[in-house]
Design a protein around this nucleic acid. Sequence first.
DNA 1: ATCCTCCCCTAC
DNA 2: TAAGGTAGGGGAGGAT
Length: 905
Amino acid sequence: MRRRDEKFPENGFEAWGGYMHAKVSKLKEQFSSKAAAEIRVSNIFNGISIFVNGFTIPSADELKELMVQHGGVYHTYQTNDDFIIASNLPDTKVKNMSLSKVVKPEWITDSIKCNCLLDYNIYLLYSNKRTQPKLNFNRLNKTESTPNFENDNTTVYEESKANAIISDENTNNNQLLDTNHKPNKLQQETKQCNIAKTAVDPNFISEFYNNSRLHHISQLGASFKQYINDLRDESNYLFPARVHLSEKIRFINKQSTYSINFEYNKIIMHIDMDCFFVSVGLRSRSDLKGKPIAVTHSKGGQSQKRPGVDRNVEFNLYKQRQAAKWSKVSETSENNIETRVDNIGDEGDKFGSMSEIASCSYEAREKGVKNGMFMGAALRLCPDLQTIPYDFDGYKEVAYTLYNTIAQYTLDIEAVSCDEMYVDCTTLLKDLNVDVVDFATVLREEIKEKTGCPCSTGFGGNRLQARLATKKAKPNGQFFLTSDLVEDFIFNISLKDLPGVGRQISQKLESLGHYTCGSLQQLTLAHLQKYLGNKIGLQLFNQCRGRDLNSLTFHVVRKSVSAEVNYGIRFENNEQCYNFIKQLSAEVHSRMEQFKVVGKCITLKLMVRAKDAPVETAKFMGHGYCDVINKSVSLTSPTSDPQIIAKEIVSLCMKLNIDPREMRGIGIQITKLESVNNRQTKGSLSKFIVSEKINNKPVKKEDLMSINDMQNSHIAKTNPVTPKKVFQSPNMRSPILSSKRSPTIGPKRSPSRKRGRPPKSLKLEQSTKSVMDKFLQGNSSNTILQAKVSMEKKEIKQETVIETPAKKEKGLLGLHWEQTRELLRAWLDSNQTPKLCDINMISDYMCDMVINKNIDKLYILINFFRRRVTELNDEIWSEVQNCILEKVQNTMIAVYGKKLWFESN
DNA sequence: ATCCTCCCCTAC
DNA sequence: TAAGGTAGGGGAGGAT
């Protein structure tokens, strides 16, 4: 018998890799439904690049496609050479930008109509920089530019009424232009020309979003998650920059070697910029370095007194609510409740500013200033606190640099936000063969050099450890939490510092007398679950022991899209409210277009002034003390149509019957999403597996714990729990998969069997995956990554049906199973000796299918494979088959407790 | 039991 | 003045 290595040479991948690549490209074409749409039609826009700002008709997506078709370039992010396509720009933005290249979208559409590039000067949105922006509201509201739905037949009274309202021509915008509409014409026009003050103003939404830090944080976070998805899809998984990195590291430490921390399966890095917004702002203000600084809208000027404001009344309401909430937990706390509104001065007071601090420097933190604090309260703590303005473009730029820096070296990145990510460094560090700390030093130096901003990194065996390590490392430092340190380290960690433990949960725990992880370790799992619920209890039980069941997620799949505005909402009548809903629906629509999703469930979120709250809010244009009301409808078919969304929301609004003058916030959320591109019906068995009852036994706590203990072996030593439960009953056959029937293709097997359901817990799936990763540890060298190059493609991402949680993690290879079948076919027919890396790749893929409960597809795939192997009648291939099947069955046992049944064995 | 809806909580 | 968004996880409790 030959040695395994000979039979499955490790480094012989390239030939097959190249072959696979070609094969995959071909497959890609076949599977690409969009290929036809991307054919070049003309070269009208040769040399022209555009950036779309805000809501346009046609939509940004449509413009993108048009540009591609006609030889132009579409930029998701604005560059200097871009023409800016916009129908409407917020005034503040207009003030700060050159308007000489801001062009209406008609420039694009008309040019295409004429089949030649028209003079953009004719289409300038603002003809002269000096003049006030003059927007043609008529144009924006014309029916021709918005799809109408007058043909929509509805039976429900409210709906038809809602319909009528939405399609009503006489909107607020038009009123503004109506010269006969005298009451506040002058006043309104003044508003138009200056700043959008309330949501009644047509520019309000974009104005608000342009200045909202929370909106930017959220959007940037989402876009970096997408960015990582894209990079992973497009990468060849070769990281030439690693060579330089390795050299640099050896320059600072010649002896640097990767000493494996045997206790850890993985080395996870957490990386976080230090007080991000401040650092970015200080790049150009080195004079302010070392001083207490806060990023806020407030410029320090004293606020005016507004009539009707009673801060005390409002603040007391907040306190009462908080007290009521906490008294549920324990009767002890009554008076000493700390709230956000403490220490705020009165209006006009030196400490009266209610502008929120987005980020503050460490010097300010030392004085007790915190992010999210009101400026007034912060000034009380730190009177010499200086403010700097927001620089949203700067944040984006620095964040890109940060991400690109890391992405040179690895793409095993989970983006958390624009300034924070987790990185699985296991293979990277092995490849570089350097010490963890040296690696951190050099990496942080590079980031500092490129961005001008400091960052901190933490390393550990799981994400919790990495994250806590970063916390310790800050500011501008690094920390490797080695396995020998974990126990002591975690013991002293404050419960508040655990991710997922916020104000409410820490309050609950404190009322039980627990402030630190060490103390919480006294509580039993059952006890914790009784107080906090099953999931959170388990999570905490593990966290306070330094364990973390959650593995990193490299691919993100969206589950909801929403837009909400809880600032500046002041309506005088229903008409203004409905008009705003129309605009917000358009916003939601354009986001859905961007993500290429449609949704079935529409939710209205309203903030309404609470009964006792003052009409005039303490914070200027804030929402004040409110009741929150949510209401949702489910549609029969998914949509992203702004008209339908608006209609449904108005209809919900009418049912709630709330005085529009009391509204303080409006949000629209769409859930039950489906991807637009490929709304395939799922295989019947897959549906069956997800929704039918198969196994009535709930997930056992012990199962979860034992899995966890395998994952954190160093802790298992002090706290031994054998993992045998997970692997019990390997001979029991799955009631679904083992019943007597011929192994025909999925859809034909009617889901008549009722019993047994795979454990539902996502946690279990994820942790099982980690166990399996360990189990199936192949040689995860670069060759496998290279294979992903060819295999991981965009189409797959798009076909994913979003709502199935099991699909959240798509495993190592994001390939469509049918593509994999074709690859298998090609592989078997290639007449080459199978390589170990290829075998691992295939088995990993299949194991992921088990984990993702894609059993019906897996079944087809394996049967196909077995059939072909039998036909080949080759000893080596038979062994390959056995090798793969063994791994798959191991995974089956771990996930389902049962093996997959096949006809002839 | 399990599913669905309406929340609440947390994070950035 | 001020720009209090957004997504995901999960619990409570009623409907089935």
